[in-house]
Each structure stands twice: as C-alpha cells, then as structure tokens.
Design a protein around this nucleic acid. Structure first.
Lengths: 203, 203
DNA sequence: AGTTTTGTTAACCAAATGGTTAAACTTAAT
DNA sequence: ATTAAGTTTAACCATTTGGTTAACAAAACT
C-alpha cells in the first residue's frame, strides 16, 4: 500500500471499506486510517464522501459486466462463450467475491445510480448478439427451442455469484464450518456450473 | 397499518425500513414516521436500535431457511422435494423479494449474527437427511453419481434468489425496461428452474 | 373517585460524522 | 535563496442521530 501515491492509496482504501460496509456503513475516518493519511486529504482529493463513493461504484459496476461484454464479443459458439464466461468470471470473483453484493446492494438503495454506468447499456447491445447466436443454434438443432437467452444469463450469473455472497450462510448450513475450504469448493463448482448450464442447453 | 397495536406497527415499519436500507442506512425516525408514532416509543418498546434490528433479523433469518427445512422434512423423493421447494420458496419471495439480500448483507457485515439464528443449525440437520436420500437414489440409479448435495442446494437457492435481488440490473441489461413485467418473468422462470435442476440430477 | 400502572409525547442531550479552515510542510520553478 | 504551487495536518464546526427525561394522558385497579 505504501508504495502507491496518495490518490491511489485513498482509492484502494475506499474500495475495501465501501465494499465491506456499503455507502451507509463506511466511515471517512476508516478510509483515511486504512490509507494511512489524514481525513482532510480525502476531501482534498475527492471533495465529498458521495463523490469518492461514486468513483468506486462506477468502477465496480463496470467490472461486474466487463467479462460478460468481453466474452460475448468473440465469435465462438454459445457453449464456448458460456464456458469461457464461467472461467473468466470465476477468476475475477476469486479476487473480490463480495464485489457483486456491493454493487447490487447499492443499486437497490438507489436504482438511479445504475443508469450512470454506461457499460450496462453497452453490455445490452452485446447481449443482443448473443441472443441472435442462440436463435441460430436453435435453428441448427444444437440448443433446445424453449430456452430463452435471458434465462441462460441469469442462470450463469446466479450460480456464480450467489454462493460467494452467501458464503457464510452456506458454510454454516451445508458444510463442516471448521474443516471446509470454501475457496476449494468454489473452484470445484466451476465444472459443476459448466455441466449444469451446458446440459440446460441440450434439446 | 392503523388497525395494529403499537408494537406490531413498529415491527411492521421496522421490517420495511431495515430491509430497504439495512441496519446502517435505517433511521429510527423513519421507522417512527412509518409507524405513525413518536420516536421515543421505539425505545419504550425495544430499548435500542440494535435490539429492534435483532428482532427483525432473527425473524427474517428464520424465514430464509424455513421452507427448506419444512420441505426436506417430508418423505418425498428428491425430485418432488426440489420441485416443492421451488414452488413454496417462490411464493414467499414474491411477497418480499429483497429479504434474502437483507439477511445476507447483514451476515456479511457481522457474521457472528448468523450464529444467533438457531434455525440454521436445525436446517443443517434436516439437510443431512436430504443428503442420505440423495445417496440412496444414486444407488438406485435415479441420480447421477457425481452430484453433491451441497451443489443442488446452492443451485436452487442461487437460481431463485439472485434474479430477484439483482432485478434492477437484469431488467436494465436483459429486457426492455419500460415494457417488461418482471414479476411475470420471475413466475415463468419457476418452470425453467425446475427444468434445469431436475435435468442436472439425471444420470 | 382516587390511585397506580401503562402508554405517549415534546424537548433535550451527547456522541458521531461529514466537512471546513488555516497553518505548516514539501517540491519545483525562478 | 525566494517564491509559488501543491500537499498534508490538527483543530474546529454544523448537523445528524440514537437515546433520555420529565411531563402528560389513558387505562386498569382499589
């Protein structure tokens, strides 16, 4: 942390605190402490809590749809796209598993924020392409006719994100709290998710 | 609201405010206003914000695992149990789609809270029964051998909860914001989820 | 009817919190 | 060396917020 310039130190601390506590729970003093600087510097660099928060929220909002956008942009088959999506998204989530919970929580507190992430509209466009590709493969008999592309996307996102954001609950309910290595379980689930998703495509 | 006694009015208002804003974002004054009473009455009935919150959190924590516990307690086949779980849980979530987001967010802010919901331990026991039933049906060749019971549970919960808590994001990304009836989409998805889950069991 | 208990309110309080200010320190240009 | 600009800090301020108090009202009890 100490080898970063002040602005980056603040941003890194803000990421941690906002993601862990949310906008309401985050304290400017905590961010300053974690960054190892005086609280007034936060305002010197970012004017207000709201503006600092906005920086982080937009950044993480983008990240949330980035992989999806990236992977749909390729010219692969639907099955290849989905498998790639699962792998890349998993890699990213392993770094910051609670990031989607942060973004979704904040969107629910104030849905208008969502519209300030233009990448979501861009992603929308990309997804239309995927919808076409799915229609095509339906015609070719490769994908079951009843499948809606919205469902596939929601399925993949759900299966990847929800176990991570609900980690504590699932560890307590489904595993032996002291013995389980949940990170390993999540890694193992990659193949399971691919299996479930790809099977759901079969005609 | 006005036909309830004061204590129930407070609890109902607290449910709404805590679920919408979380512990940190909730204001005692907002709860009092929504209940139509003086703020001091909140403390008269529940001593502190923390204690009022605890009441709601425990109640909702219980509700989150209640259906699972109830349905696993029956003597049905695994497929019947899962189909029933999806139907009952959907009915409940239609009433309060953001409740799981509330519980999970608060658990992440303070994981120790989780241990104060004894129903989760009870649920744990019930799930062992389901695990045995799954093993049995694996022996009988009804379920694919590689399937782990933890995965089925996480799959069902994920597919049901995540689209609801991410509603705003999904509507923006996948649908025509102005035209879509997301409630209808969620209802339609019931059958889709059953399909995906039941297919994932097939040997 | 009178008295005690329970319920309810307005006014108030102390702590926390986001934000400001003015001075001090650092760096680089002149 | 002097100045000017940018950076950093301690002290301070105003507001919000959870919580308290004391007086008042309404039941419940005698």
């Amino acid at each position: 942390m100490s080898d970063l310039n002040t602005e980056e130190k603040i941003l890194e601390a803000a990421r941690e605190v906002f993601i862990a506590k949310g906008l309401d729970g985050a304290r400017m003093q905590d961010i300053a402490d974690k960054a190892g600087i005086n609280k007034a510097l936060l305002h010197y660099y970012f004017r207000s809590k709201e503006m600092l928060f906005q920086k982080i929220f937009l950044e993480k909002g983008r990240e949330l749809v980035q992989v999806l956008e990236q992977v749909v942009g390729t010219n692969l088959s639907v099955r290849e796209i989905l498998a790639m999506l699962i792998d890349l998204e998993s890699d990213k989530l392993d770094q910051e598993p609670l990031m989607p919970l942060f973004v979704i929580s904040e969107i629910n507190r104030n849905p208008a924020k969502l519209l300030q992430v233009p990448e979501i509209q861009a992603c929308r466009q990309c997804l239309k392409k995927l919808a076409l590709q799915i229609d095509l493969e339906k015609e070719q008999g490769k994908i079951r006719k009843e499948l809606q592309f919205q469902d596939v996307i929601m399925d993949v996102m759900s299966l990847m994100h929800f176990p991570r954001i609900g980690k504590n609950l699932f560890v307590e309910m489904l595993y032996d709290r002291d013995k389980v290595d949940f990170a390993k379980e999540v890694t193992r689930r990659r193949e399971h998710i691919k299996f479930v998703i790809l099977r759901s495509l079969e005609p």
